[in-house]
Design a protein around this nucleic acid. Structure first.
Length: 847
DNA sequence: TTTGGTGTGGTCTGGA
DNA sequence: TCCAGACCACACC
C-alpha cells in the first residue's frame, strides 16, 4: 500500500538485530499511523591523515572492515535516550556493516573519507572508539566525525524531509491482529515501509489537535497528592476530574486519586491528540503523575508505542515524553526562547498568559486552595480554577506552538525536541541540517577540557557604547542597523574556513578593523551561505505576508516562520563565540564585533560632520539631535549613510522622538549608558534600563519612577517632586500594601555556593530553615522588615514578612529611583524627604 | 556546559 | 566608622 502521513514524532526500535526508524503521524483522514522504516542504518565518518597514499587508504578500509569488539549490554543504550526499548544485546560481538569511500567537504576542501556503517545505533560508540584507538587504524587517521548524531535526527537530515511535513510511505500494512500480537502499538495504521519520501503535500496541515491538562495538588505527609485534574482539548472538550463532588458542570466524578489518574489517562487518549500540552509538565504535572502512579500502582498514560511515558534527559531538563503524542511543555519554550523578549517578573502561567493573551487566571492562592480542599468548601470554585488552568494552557498553546512548529521544521528537529532547545542547540541543529544538505562534514563537539579552555580565555571586545550627555534633550531621531551582526557575517564572509585564506593574503578588502585577520573574497563560507539563505527566506516570507489579511491563518503561519528564521539568524553570531559550539571560532566572533564597532563609529562621525549632535549610541544604534525639519533631514542622512555601506549592511530609521532623557551615573563622571527614556509626539513613553524595567526593584519604586519620568518628559518636574513627597508620606504612615513592596530576585545557585550573602539569599536561608524548599533557578519574592541589623538580616520572603521597614523603602527604594531621574534638575534627597528649606525652583528644568 | 560582550548599581565585607 | 573592592543580579543590544 501507499500512504501519506503527516509526521509529528519519531524514534527507532531494534527488532531481530535490525534498526527501524519509527515515524508517528496522522493520515489525511485523521487516522493515527506508525511507519516502520528499516532502510536506514547508522554511520559515522573516518578522516584519513592528510597526504595518505592510496594503498594505505585501502589498508585502513580493510582494517576497519575487520573490526570486532565486545559490547556490554548495560552500556549500549542510545545516547539521547530517544531510541526504542529493544537495544540491549548480551555481550555481542560488534562488527562493521560496511565501510566505503565517500567524497565530502571539510571547509573548502573536498576530501575522501570512509563512511563506516553499523548494524544498529548502539554500536556506533564502540566502533568509533575502536577505529580511533586501535593500532591497526589509528595511524592512518586524523580523526572521526559525526559519531554523536542521534539516529532518528540523522534520518531526517539525510532523507531531506522534516518533522511536521507529509511523507509518502510505500510498504506492507500490518493487520490489527498482528499489531496486537507482535507489536502492541496503539495506532489505527501500522505499516512496514522500504521507501519513505517527502510527499507532494508539502507541510500544510489543517490544524493540530492538542490536549492540555493540569493538576491541582496538596501536600500531605510530605507527599504531593493529586486532588483534581482538568483537561481542555482543541474542539471544545473541557473536563474536571475530581473525587470530591463539587457541582461543577464539567465534572467527571471518580472514587479515588488512583481512579483519577486512570481517568485522566484514558480521557487524554480518548481525545486522540497530536500533541499533549502542559505548562511546566516536565518538572511538575508529569513528575507528580509519575510519582503517584507508582505509589498507587495505577498505570499511567501510554504512548503509541504501547509503552508508558518515559522521562528523558534533555540537557538540564527531564523531559516527559509520550511517544506519538509529543508532550510540549510550554514553560520550557517560554523560559528558553521567549523570556528575553518578555517583561513578566516571573514566568508563571498567570503572568505569561496575561502578557501574551491579555488574560490571566483568577484568584485562589495556594492557602485558599488548601482551605477549600481540607474544609470541603468552595469546591465548585476550586474546580473552576482548575479548569481555567487547562483552558489557559490550551489558549497559550494556540499562540505559542506555531512558533515551536516553525522552529521544528526549520531545524528538522522533532517538535518535542525543538520545544526544549536552547538558542545554541537550535542554531546547531540548523547548521547540521544545512551541512548535511551541502555535503559538508559536521565538526565534532568540543570535549569537556576544550570547553573549559575556551571559557578560560579572555573576553574579546564587543559593541561600542557612546556615553550620553545627561539631561533632557529635544527633537531626537533614532537609527539602527537592521540585523547588524548577521549582515556583517554575510557581507564580510565571516567563517572559520574563510579566515585568513591563502588566496586573499594581500588584499585589503575584508580586513578586520584593528586586526591582521581577513576573510576570503572568492569563496563564500558555510556560515555566510546559510545566513544568506535565511535572509532570502525571511525576505520572501515578509513579502508574502504583505499580501495577506493580518487575521488570516496563513498570515500567522508565515509570521511564525519568519520568527523562526529571525531567531536562528540572530543567534548565529553568539554561536560562533559559544564555548560549546561545533563551529566555535573566537577570531570570527571578535571580527564581527570589530566590524560592528567600525560601522557604528563611522555613522557617528558622519552625523557629526553633518552637524548633528550625537546624543547616544549602543552597538547598532545612534540617537541624533536634529534641530530643523527632523523627518526629511533624517531621511536624507539615512540615504547618505546607506550609499556608503557595503553589502547587505543597512541603517534603518527607527523613529522620531519629541524629547528624551539621559541621566548621570551614580558613581564616577558623566552620563549613564543603557538608561534612557523617550517620548514621541503621541505621548508614548519608552523606558530602557531604569529601575522601572528591573524586576529586582519594588513595584512602588518602579511605578513612582515611571510617573516621574512621564512628568519630566512632559516638562512637569515640579509635579514630579510633589508626587514623590506624597508617596514618601504614604510609606511612612504604613498605608502601602506589602505586595507593592516585594522585590523579585532569582536564586541563581545553590545556597552553599554563595560567597556573599545578599538580602535574597538571607531570606531564602531563613525560609529553608523553616522547612521550605527552594531550588536554584527559582525567582523569589522578599520584603525588608523592621528591626535591627543589616538589610539582609531583615529580609524575609513575603509569606513570612510580618511588617515592612518604611525607612528602607523610602531611603533605598523610592528616593534613589526617583532621584536617579530628578537629580539632573538639581533636586536633592532632602527635597524629596520634605526636609529642604523652601528654596525656589529656579534653575530647574533647564541645564 | 547548554548563544556573545557592555554596563549600572545595590549590598556585603574586611581592613584602615 | 568609613570606604573601596568584590560579589551579585539584571538590564541593553
Amino acid at each position: 500500500m501507499n500512504i501519506d502521513v503527516f509526521i509529528n514524532d519519531a524514534d527507532y526500535v531494534v527488532r531481530e538485530g535490525k534498526p527501524f526508524v519509527r515515524l508517528y503521524g496522522r493520515t489525511h483522514e485523521g487516522k493515527s499511523a506508525i511507519i516502520l522504516d528499516g532502510s536506514f542504518f547508522p554511520y559515522f565518518y573516518v578522516v584519513p591523515k592528510p597526504g595518505i597514499k592510496q594503498d594505505e587508504l585501502n589498508t585502513l578500509k580493510k582494517n576497519i572492515e575487520k573490526i570486532k569488539v565486545l559490547g556490554s549490554p548495560e552500556k549500549v543504550s542510545d545516547e539521547t535516550g530517544n531510541g526504542g526499548e529493544e537495544n540491549s544485546f548480551a555481550d555481542d560481538e560488534i562488527t562493521v556493516k560496511s565501510a566505503e569511500f565517500i567524497e565530502k567537504k571539510i571547509g573548502a576542501d573536498k576530501i575522501t573519507l570512509l563512511k563506516v556503517t553499523a548494524n544498529i545505533p548502539a554500536h556506533i560508540p564502540y566502533l568509533k572508539s575502536a577505529v580511533h584507538d586501535s593500532s591497526a587504524t589509528a595511524k592512518y587517521i586524523s580523526g572521526v566525525r559525526e559519531y554523536d548524531i542521534p539516529f532518528y535526527k540523522r534520518y531526517f537530515f539525510d532523507r531531506g524531509f522534516s518533522p511536521l511535513s507529509w511523507v509518502s510511505a510505500e510498504g506492507t500494512e500490518i493487520s490489527k491482529k498482528e499489531n496486537e500480537d507482535r507489536f502492541g502499538y496503539s495506532s489505527d495504521i501500522l505499516i512496514v515501509s522500504k521507501n519513505v519520501a517527502a510527499s507532494k503535500k508539502g507541510d500544510l496541515y489543517n490544524g493540530h489537535k492538542m490536549a492540555a491538562f493540569d493538576l491541582e495538588t496538596i501536600e500531605e505527609d510530605k507527599k504531593l497528592k493529586i486532588i483534581m485534574a482538568s483537561i481542555a482539548a482543541t474542539g471544545g472538550y473541557a473536563k474536571v476530574i475530581s473525587y470530591e463532588k463539587n457541582g461543577f458542570e464539567k465534572e467527571i466524578f471518580v472514587k479515588s486519586e488512583k481512579e483519577l489518574i486512570a481517568t485522566l489517562s484514558s480521557e487524554i487518549v480518548a481525545q486522540d491528540p497530536d500533541f499533549i500540552i502542559t505548562y511546566n509538565g516536565d518538572a511538575f504535572d508529569f513528575a507528580v503523575l509519575d510519582a503517584r502512579s507508582k505509589d498507587l500502582k495505577q498505570k499511567m498514560i501510554a504512548g503509541r508505542d504501547g509503552k508508558p511515558l518515559r522521562f528523558q534527559k534533555k540537557g538540564r531538563i527531564k523531559a516527559a515524553m509520550v511517544k506519538g503524542m509529543p508532550h510540549i511543555d510550554l514553560f520550557n519554550f517560554v523560559a528558553r526562547v521567549m523570556s528575553p523578549a518578555m517583561s513578566s517578573e516571573t514566568l508563571t502561567l498567570d503572568n505569561v498568559a496575561m502578557e501574551i493573551l491579555g488574560e490571566g487566571k483568577k484568584g485562589f492562592t495556594w492557602d485558599q486552595m488548601k482551605d477549600a480542599w481540607v474544609n470541603k468548601r468552595k469546591l465548585y470554585e476550586l474546580a473552576g480554577y482548575c479548569m481555567q488552568d487547562s483552558l489557559l494552557t490550551l489558549k497559550l498553546a494556540e499562540r505559542i506552538t506555531p512558533n515551536i512548529f516553525a522552529l521544528s521544521k526549520l531545524t528538522s528537529q522533532l517538535p518535542g525536541d525543538a520545544s526544549r532547545m536552547t538558542y545554541g542547540q537550535l542554531v546547531e541543529s540548523y547548521a547540521m541540517k544545512k551541512a548535511s544538505q551541502m555535503n559538508i562534514v559536521v565538526p565534532n563537539k568540543p570535549s569537556y577540557d576544550e570547553i573549559g579552555e575556551r571559557k578560560g580565555m579572555e573576553q574579546y571586545a564587543g559593541g561600542f557604547v557612546k556615553e550620553p550627555r545627561a539631561g533632557l534633550h529635544e527633537s531626537i531621531a533614532v537609527f539602527d542597523f537592521r540585523g547588524l551582526y548577521p549582515s556583517i557575517i554575510v557581507t564580510h564572509n565571516v567563517d572559520p574556513h574563510t579566515l585568513n585564506c591563502p588566496c586573499c593574503k594581500d588584499k585589503e578588502e575584508n580586513r578586520v578593523p584593528g586586526s591582521d585577520n581577513y576573510f576570503c573574497t572568492k569563496n563564500r563560507g558555510f556560515i555566510p551561505e546559510i545566513l544568506v539563505e535565511l535572509f532570502e527566506e525571511r525576505k520572501s516570507l515578509k513579502q508574502k505576508m504583505k499580501t495577506l489579511d493580518k487575521k488570516s491563518k496563513e498570515y500567522h503561519e508565515l509570521n511564525a516562520r519568519q520568527f523562526a528564521v529571525k531567531t536562528v539568524s540572530n543567534a548565529m553570531y553568539g554561536y560562533l563565540g559559544f564555548a560549546g559550539s561545533r563551529w566555535y571560532n573566537r577570531a570570527c566572533a571578535s571580527a564581527v564585533t570589530a566590524f560592528a564597532r567600525h560601522y557604528i563609529q563611522r555613522v557617528i562621525s558622519m552625523a557629526e560632520e553633518a552637524g548633528f549632535e550625537v546624543l547616544y549610541g549602543d552597538t547598532d544604534s545612534v540617537f541624533l539631535h536634529i534641530e530643523k525639519d527632523i523627518e526629511s533631514t533624517a531621511k536624507e542622512f539615512l540615504k547618505k549613510v546607506n550609499a556608503e555601506l557595503p553589502g547587505i549592511i543597512e541603517l534603518d530609521f527607527q523613529g522620531i522622538y519629541v524629547r528624551g532623557i539621559f541621566v548621570s551615573r551614580k558613581v564616577g563622571e558623566g552620563g549613564a549608558k543603557k538608561r534612557y527614556a523617550l517620548i514621541d509626539k503621541e505621548g508614548n513613553v519608552i523606558i530602557r534600563g531604569f529601575e522601572k524595567v528591573r524586576r529586582d526593584w519594588s513595584k512602588l519604586a518602579k511605578d513612582t519612577q515611571e510617573k516621574v519620568l512621564e512628568l519630566v518628559l512632559n516638562k512637569r518636574q515640579k509635579e514630579a517632586v510633589e508626587l514623590v513627597k506624597k508617596i514618601v508620606i504614604e510609606i511612612k504612615t504604613e498605608k502601602v500594601d506589602m505586595k507593592e513592596l516585594r522585590i523579585y530576585t532569582q536564586l541563581t545557585r545553590q545556597l552553599k555556593n554563595y560567597v556573599q550573602i545578599g538580602p535574597h539569599v538571607a531570606a531564602v536561608k531563613k525560609a529553608v530553615a523553616r522547612g521550605k524548599e527552594i531550588l536554584p533557578g527559582e525567582t523569589i519574592e522578599y520584603v525588608i522588615t523592621k528591626g535591627t541589623g543589616s538589610i539582609s538580616d531583615r529580609a524575609e520572603l513575603i509569606e513570612y514578612a510580618k511588617n515592612y521597614d518604611p525607612e528602607y523603602y523610602i531611603n533605598n527604594q523610592i528616593v534613589p529611583a526617583a532621584l536617579r531621574v530628578l537629580h539632573i534638575f538639581g533636586v536633592t534627597e532632602d527635597d524629596l524627604l520634605g526636609k529642604a528649606k523652601q528654596k525656589g525652583l529656579s534653575g530647574w528644568g533647564r541645564k
